[in-house]
Simulated assay, not measured.
Amino acid sequence: MTTIKDVAKLSGVSMSTVSRVMNAPESVRADKREKVEKAIRELRYYPNALARGLISKRTETLGVLIPDVSNPYVSEVIRGMEDAAHSLGSNLILCNTDRNQERMINYLKVLKEKQVDGIIYTSEPFTADFHKLFEEFNMPVVLASTQSIEYEIPSVKINDEKAGYDAGMYLIRKGHYKIGMISGPIEDPIAGYTRYSGFKKAMSEILPMETIDAWIEFGSYRYEDGYEAMKRLYKKQPEVTAVFVASDEMALGAISYLHQIGISVPEEVSVLGFDNTKIAKMCIPKLTTIGQPMYDIGQKAVFKLEALLNSEELDELRSYLDHTIVERDSVKELSRKLYSNW
């Protein structure tokens, strides 16, 4: 196997000069740089990350901890991360934790052995136990699609409570007032409780606060959860005219149940999703949804981690990107509005 020593010998320079050519070529005289580059081509030398790291103190690899790699939301976030990492000359190591702490600890050990430069932790709540683990492993970390209020850790996400509020107000402005919600788990502080809380705040504009929970069911963001939650909601509130669902995948489950019992969407019941994943455009009717800038979240998380690694001062510790309402076909505007000024 060709080594850096072979390249140095063929080009007639020291090994440190070869390393500088690979890591900081502008610091090497043009004539020496050309000799080294020619030797690298002739010997077909491909330096490994650890060897480069001896000089640069970087392996140009980033670890990404993902709770569920099959989630369509996650795949778009990862695409933003990969493009950002590629633009910086870095690579990603993706680790699917399956929301299992023991598995995550094992991945952290592997990432430490691989000498990754830093870690991006996605989607799950960042608990005190997790914070202790990251301190023990002593690796820079940025949070993507999650955040920590307790600890000073950089993060990138949307304001989920504001998004839940805007979802409720959107349906109200469309003339609905018999509005239900299929929420994520209320014990999930990142996307569950926050979207639920924002929706309740919007509904309090038209309903007594104590009556709102009767219009809310819960699930774990999956298609099956949406189907079952819609069944429960419709059985207790058959007069519902619109439903806000806390993920696109659950929204498809809700639509499926309504179709099964002969309820037309959006003619009889409107459905509003959340995320704007690719599946939102693939269903019938196409799903109106609260859009998250998934690609931008992933991209900004990588750039924020790069700034940390370069000891640069961050513009902001916790970044909140804008959400949007993506209008398609699953929400109908009622002709009679509850309030004329809406």
Rank of each mutant, 00 (worst) to 15 (best):
T3H: 04
V7D: 07
A8G: 14
G12D: 11
S14F: 12
S16L: 14
S19E: 01
S27K: 10
D31L: 06
E42R: 07
L43W: 03
G53H: 04
T59A: 05
P67N: 08
D68T: 07
Y73C: 04
V74G: 06
E76K: 09
I78L: 06
R79I: 12
E82Q: 13
A84E: 02
A85E: 00
H86Q: 10
H86D: 14
S87F: 11
S87I: 12
L88Q: 14
G89M: 02
L92A: 04
N100T: 10
Y107C: 01
L108A: 01
L111N: 01
K112L: 11
V116I: 13
I120D: 04
T127Y: 09
D129T: 15
K132F: 11
L133K: 11
M139D: 09
V141H: 04
L143V: 14
A144L: 08
Q147K: 10
V156I: 12
V156Y: 04
K157S: 15
N159V: 11
Y170S: 05
R173D: 15
K174L: 10
K178F: 00
I179L: 07
G180E: 03
P185A: 08
P185I: 03
A191M: 10
A191I: 08
K200M: 06
I206R: 02
L207V: 07
L207F: 07
P208A: 12
E210V: 10
T211Y: 05
T211M: 08
I212A: 03
W215C: 02
I216L: 10
I216A: 03
G226T: 09
A229C: 14
M230S: 11
K236H: 12
V240Q: 01
S247G: 07
D248N: 06
A251G: 03
A251M: 05
A254N: 06
G262Y: 11
S264P: 05
E268H: 03
V269F: 00
G273Y: 02
F274W: 03
T277S: 14
A280D: 05
K281M: 12
C283D: 05
G291K: 13
D296P: 04
Q299S: 14
V302L: 07
L308K: 11
L309K: 02
E313R: 05
E313Q: 12
D315G: 13
E316Y: 08
R318M: 06
R318L: 07
I325W: 00
E327H: 04
R328Y: 04
D329F: 15
K337N: 15
K337D: 09
